[in-house]
Amino acid sequence: MHPPAQADGTAWWSVAPYCRICGARPALQVTVHAHQGVLMWMRFHREDGPFCRSCGIAVVRELTTKTLWQGWWSPLSLVGFTPIALICNFSVRRKLTTLAPPGPSAPGATRKIQGKPVHQRPLAYVALVPLAWVVGFFIPQIIPAIITHI
């Protein structure tokens, strides 16, 4: 079976982008997000592709882990920006996993090592601290209100 052709008759692989990290193909143009909340200010960070599957998943894992441990520490981050960044990264990861395995890297380029999945990185579990704080603060407030209305 022949690969699909572009409108001008060229094969898809002759116009597909190269990974910006290692130079391999196929690569996908995506943006990976990170968010950091610190009391009353926030910082946004993003890495723009194109990325091959291996390098892209490595970037997603890195920035998602950073967001999980740094993203919850301001009020707007807690309820808005951090969850949005995590959902966007989940969507990007799903797109990257549909790519074929990357071909050879460009001469002299090194491929990013994917490393451990996010759930196996200890820093990802720092996200449980703000969750415990919210549960510890709001649950004692809500339960008495519920009991008095019963």
Rank of each mutant, 00 (worst) to 15 (best):
M1E: 14
M1A: 15
P3V: 11
A7R: 11
A7T: 09
A7N: 07
D8K: 05
D8V: 03
D8F: 01
D8I: 02
W12M: 06
W12L: 10
W13A: 11
S14A: 14
V15Y: 06
V15M: 10
V15E: 12
A16V: 06
A16W: 07
P17R: 12
P17Q: 10
P17A: 11
C19T: 07
R20H: 07
R20W: 01
I21Y: 08
C22N: 01
G23L: 01
A24H: 03
R25T: 13
R25K: 15
R25W: 02
R25Q: 15
A27W: 03
A27H: 02
A27S: 07
L28A: 09
Q29G: 10
V30C: 02
A34I: 01
H35M: 08
Q36W: 07
L39D: 11
M40E: 09
M42G: 12
R43P: 04
F44T: 14
R46I: 02
R46F: 06
E47C: 04
G49C: 02
G49A: 05
P50G: 07
C52T: 06
S54M: 03
G56V: 00
I57T: 14
A58S: 12
A58E: 04
A58R: 04
V60H: 06
R61H: 09
R61C: 03
L63K: 04
L63V: 01
T64P: 02
T65W: 01
K66G: 06
T67L: 00
G71V: 01
W72V: 04
W73M: 10
W73G: 06
S74T: 09
S74I: 01
P75F: 11
P75Q: 05
L76K: 06
S77L: 01
S77D: 12
L78T: 08
L78K: 07
L78F: 14
L78V: 07
V79M: 12
V79K: 07
V79P: 05
F81P: 00
F81Y: 13
P83Y: 04
P83E: 00
I84W: 15
L86C: 05
L86K: 03
C88D: 12
C88H: 14
N89M: 00
F90E: 11
S91T: 14
V92R: 00
V92I: 10
R93L: 09
R94K: 11
K95N: 09
L96E: 00
L99K: 09
L99Y: 08
L99F: 09
P102S: 12
P102V: 10
G103R: 05
G103W: 06
G103A: 08
S105L: 02
P107I: 00
A109V: 02
G115V: 08
K116F: 14
P117E: 05
H119F: 11
H119P: 04
H119T: 11
Q120R: 13
P122D: 08
L123I: 08
Y125F: 14
A127R: 02
V129W: 13
V134Q: 09
V134Y: 04
F137R: 11
F137Q: 08
F138S: 08
P140F: 07
P140A: 09
P140G: 08
Q141G: 13
I142A: 13
I143R: 10
P144Y: 12
P144A: 14
I147P: 00
I147R: 14
I147M: 14
I147Q: 15
T148I: 13
H149S: 15
H149M: 15
H149C: 12
I150W: 14
